[in-house]
Design a protein around this nucleic acid. Structure first.
Length: 112
DNA sequence: AGTTTGACTGGAG
DNA sequence: CCTCCAGCCAAAC
């Protein structure tokens, strides 16, 4: 019940996916970043949900440090409990509410 | 072609 | 801090 004027072309979608993967690859060990940050860096600020879709369904994403991507409030991915273990193994600490302590571990690439 | 679905986000209560 | 809710948009129904 709503039409979106600016949809991605197939080419833009390809570039978006590749950029997202490259950006995720740069997250340092022991740090985390958010879907929104990645979407913005990829040039599509309103596509945070697409970042999540990309990491969830792109074959090969398992080889990337995608466990270092959480939502803005520090929540880990639904249905992926192992993500917390992977992060804690790198020294990332979680708060009592089960969210990553973003004040200390968020990595913003020096921008935004 | 209309509706629902999310690895999201921002704001309200 | 938490729960809803509206807005978001490509994909899957």
């Amino acid at each position: 019940m709503k039409d979106y004027a600016d949809k991605m072309t197939a080419e833009q979608a390809r570039r978006f996916r590749d950029d997202v993967l490259d950006i995720v690859r740069q997250i340092p060990r022991g740090r985390v970043t958010t879907y929104g940050t990645i979407a913005t860096l990829a040039g599509w600020p309103s596509h945070s949900r697409m970042v999540g879709r990309t990491l969830r369904y792109t074959p090969g994403a398992e080889q990337l440090p995608c466990h270092r991507v959480v939502n803005k409030s520090g929540r880990t991915a639904p249905g992926w409990s192992r993500q917390r273990t992977l992060l804690e193994d790198e020294g990332v600490r979680f708060k009592d509410n089960g969210h990553v302590d973003m004040e200390h571990y968020l990595w913003d690439y020096g921008v935004i």
